[in-house]
Design a protein around this nucleic acid. Structure first.
Lengths: 345, 345
DNA sequence: CTGTTAGCGCATTCAG
DNA sequence: CTGAATGCGCTAACAG
């Protein structure tokens, strides 16, 4: 009783032709009188225009394919929030595919989406390979990347290098000379290479006495926790986690061993997760607005779809969030009374 | 050059009729010889069958609408992970709509999806109203709910009442007699009422000396943090947060005020978020497997779609996660050496 | 302003 | 086993 009523039924009931109903549904050119009759007929029948028939004609799906590395991640959630915030008002809907952190699955998903006839594809990638590039170019619909960059495809991402530099400059200014960077695999160009390199550059530049050790760990805090001892042995005055999760794992390790932060050693992270504010001491970090990344990406996609000149301002702001986990070595005392959550806001 | 090639082009190139190609694409009844010719033609032309034309005929979209209250939440992420884990192998894809925690928007989204011609709708609801029920029944496609329950519609959810009871029983066994429940609005039937009531029942049942205070707060930890003082004033021996987020906020407040957990007061939560293991002291909680909820829901949906008898085993397991934030009042001393993260696993 | 006429690309009878 | 014919429901010229 639902999908059974078509434009034809409405037309008959209203005593007009199918085209008139179609016009009513779309643009204009309908007399007020018939307009009213059609309106009533639609109401009576409970008519719903058939999505697929419509798309078959118009060649537009109003659907955007979204390829994600995983679902259960805070950053992915924020990204999606941003995307749907832009897409929805524009009349687009997202269709979701998960790649399980595999570049291969990512390719497969993109290919799949291309067949489905979506209007565009948004890929939050784990790494853009040559195959990705080729695939994106072979199709007729736009493919836009986030999270990673590649000169031959459109992308939106935060500036990991700049984030690294920002942190490097800060710690340097706080008088630190020996840091240990707890990072991730270099196969992740964005986090594994750029973020680290940016930090090292800004931290050591023109300071032969400055030194950065490197320890590789995973993305989750448990694997970081397990590197705790190794990190401690470096004897650095500050630990730089490549993500807040990593820093949290190390913080926990230190806490259990009675190592005081920031009195004995400082700890910082990247990401600006809410959790960082709850732990004790609250984590100093560089915060990324992933929701904004999602919004920018979605907007970029809409521009692409409309063939409009793309706003080239793809700079994602970075926020330095200074909390309690860094000691200022320029003073001869550690901070005595920690700030409260309200003060920190 | 992409979507331009149709079944007709393939047919011509292969020297067969359109129907033959169509048969090749679907079932069988094709001679080995032509089968080969068609295969080659498809390969050469790079033919992709048109999604919409196909759907227009078959009346099946292989699309499941998914309505979510919000995107940037851990539980929603896990739920989605579970859903796509089942849906994908079955050849279905999810199309996403966000309700921004509004019941009204939820209705609108469901209605919207019904028109789109999806095969089924999954709704992670914030509350099932009569309108929801009516809407679900008016359409021809199945609408399945998670997160909330209502006797007139199919749903999958964790047993909030049982979770509450489990916690109540535990704290009672640990010798606590005065608890304060930091809960949420009663408009949320699952968390606001069932979970709380389950706790109160199990905690007080047959113990006139036992007492539970109630304080209402929001879902985020900041709003819980702001209730910290009020919570403290109750003078209970244990604080029960309706969600881990709430407990975290209170934990933070206590920490800042120098109130020791669990020595001075115990704190527990619900949810089993990873974060709970990182904070100090690690939070004792009842863990829900939201990914499993997602999987069960998706499976339920598939059964519904196939008209198969629905597996009625919709019980979601609850995991009691005992960590460090509860003091055993039956002993006259508090735990001296806290467990390490590894021990806790 | 409105009805008529054609398809969109595909699956599916129905005769061979 | 295969080709021709028909129409899914809708939009878009085309003549009124």
């Amino acid at each position: 009783m639902n999908q059974k009523v078509t434009i034809k039924d409405v037309a008959e009931l209203a005593g007009v032709s199918k085209s008139t109903v179609s016009r009513y549904l779309n643009q204009g050119y309908i007399s007020e009188e018939k307009q009213e009759r059609v309106r009533k007929a639609i109401e009576q029948t409970g008519f719903k225009s058939n999505f697929f028939a419509k798309r078959l004609k118009t060649k537009q799906s109003k659907l955007i394919g979204i390829v994600l590395p995983r679902m259960d991640s805070v950053t992915v959630g924020k990204l999606l929030a941003g995307i749907s915030r832009i897409l929805e008002p524009a009349g687009y809907q997202g269709i979701l595919l998960v790649s399980k952190l595999s570049g291969h699955k990512e390719i497969e998903n993109i290919r799949n989406l291309q067949q489905q006839g979506v209007d565009g594809i948004l890929v939050d990638s784990v790494g853009i390979s040559e195959e990705h590039v080729k695939l994106a170019r072979s199709g007729t619909i736009p493919v836009l990347y986030t999270g990673q960059k590649h000169e031959d495809v459109p992308y939106v991402k935060i500036d990991d290098m700049a984030a690294g530099r920002m942190m490097g400059a800060y710690l340097r200014q706080m008088g630190h000379k020996h840091a240990v960077f707890a990072g991730v695999t270099e196969s992740d160009m964005a986090v594994g290479i750029d973020r680290k390199q940016g930090f090292i550059d800004a931290f050591t530049e023109g300071r032969p006495e400055a030194h950065v050790d490197f320890i590789e760990t995973g993305f989750d805090f448990l694997s970081a926790y397990n590197c705790g001892e190794e990190v401690r042995r470096c004897g650095a005055t500050v630990v730089v986690g490549a993500t807040d999760n990593i820093s949290l794992g190390i913080l926990r390790y230190f806490h259990e061993r009675g190592i005081r932060v920031p009195e004995d050693v400082s700890v910082v992270g990247f990401g600006g997760y809410d959790v960082g504010a709850v732990v004790y001491p609250a984590l100093t970090t560089i915060s990324f607005d992933y929701e904004l990344v999602g919004m920018k990406a979605a907007q970029y996609m809409l521009d692409l779809l409309r063939g409009e000149p793309v706003a080239q301002n793809m700079e994602m702001p970075l926020f330095f969030v200074e909390r309690e986990s860094v000691r200022n070595l320029n003073r001869d005392y550690a901070r005595e009374t920690p700030a409260t959550l309200t003060e920190m806001a």
